[in-house]
């Protein structure tokens, strides 16, 4: 993994979201801030021909997969220049020709879809891998367990990544899910699994790389639980239920700052590097916003296009 590229990718997600959130017309959004290391660590383990699917919390995964921030911003703001013409919008970002099969905003709804894409990859036999990122909220759903069973039986090239941010809207993970670790959910099916610190991009990347290599070589699916924290409330329309003190603790453990500090300590990041990365990221975000602003909204006639 290119360390500085990973740092930049995480910073892009954060500043992209800050810029989006500052807009009065951002509409309903689900942010990935705090969970950048999960998306970036996983995506750094992917090849161009692989496909990534994710939940509605999709800004991090889309940007980490390398989708042009201009396209992402346009789509999120409902503009015609988005890859889906602004019709998918928040929760349904997609750019499959660049390895981002897409987001799907039904909790657990993309897991069996990902397995189907993995079946296609297996039949194609070109070594393609399919990855699906979902939240802890999806782990109580039958779709996950049905899919784990079939994926194990058929040894599908599928990596299931649970970005466990500890909260399903307001419900703490402990109150919703019985297992001690969510990676334990894979064990009954004989699916290899691990739990890693989702705030540590290198830990995520290392484990994702190992599982990806295994799945690519016919070793079957894997389940990777990444323990993360979200910095915003569930959505822009959801009130924050955590106390101010809890939020201080949460925000104090920033995956981007943690990684920058570590790189600096190891002599892998100089002040000039950081300044340059910040400038590049700010330029990308400004460019994304300008691109989205320059694009019109879709024609109302689009409401009836591409339906059947």
């Amino acid at each position: 993994m290119d360390r500085l590229a990973a740092l930049k990718a995480m910073l892009l997600i954060r500043r992209f979201e800050v810029a989006l959130d500052a807009r009065p017309d951002h509409g309903f959004q689900l942010y990935s801030s705090g969970e950048e290391a999960v998306a970036v660590g996983v995506c750094a383990a992917l090849e161009p021909g692989d496909q990534l699917l994710c939940s509605g919390r999709s800004i991090g995964p889309a940007l980490a997969r390398g989708i042009d921030p201009r396209l992402v911003m346009a789509e999120l703001l409902g503009k015609a220049a988005g890859p889906s013409g602004g019709k998918g919008g928040r929760g349904h970002l997609a750019k499959p020709d660049q390895g981002f099969f897409g987001a799907h905003a039904v909790v657990a709804g993309n897991i069996s879809i990902a397995a189907g894409a993995a079946l296609a990859a297996q039949l194609e036999a070109k070594g393609g891998l399919v990855v699906c990122i979902f939240g802890d909220g999806a782990c109580g759903a039958g779709a996950l367990h049905e899919t784990l069973n079939i994926a194990a039986l058929w040894r599908l090239p599928l990596l299931l990544v649970c970005d466990n941010n500890g909260l399903s809207v307001s419900t703490p993970r402990e109150a919703a899910l019985a297992p001690a670790k969510l990676s334990d959910l894979a064990a009954p099916f004989g699916v290899t699994a691990a739990t890693v610190d989702g705030m540590d991009v290198e830990a995520v990347h290392a484990q994702a790389t190992e599982f990806a290599a295994r799945a690519r070589s016919g070793g079957g699916p894997a389940f990777l639980e990444c323990l993360s924290q979200r910095f915003f409330s569930h959505s822009t329309a959801t009130r924050e239920t955590r106390s101010a003190e809890t939020m201080r603790r949460v925000l104090d453990r920033c995956p981007i700052r943690l990684y920058a500090d570590r790189l600096r300590l190891n002599g892998q990041l100089g002040d000039d590097d950081l300044t340059r990365i910040e400038r590049e990221v700010d330029d990308l975000v400004a460019g994304a916003m300008a691109f989205a602003d320059a694009s019109p909204y879709p024609d109302p006639a689009e409401a009836l296009r591409d339906v059947v």
């Binding site: 069996s112 990902a114 189907g116 894409a117 899919t147 079939i150």
Partner: peptide
């Protein structure tokens, strides 16, 4: 397939979306 209609349809839909 096993008796798992949600996953069966989901796999079919996913494979379809991937070109099958």
């Amino acid at each position: 397939t096993p008796v798992a209609e949600a996953a069966m349809v989901g796999l079919g839909v996913g494979a379809a979306a991937a070109g099958y």
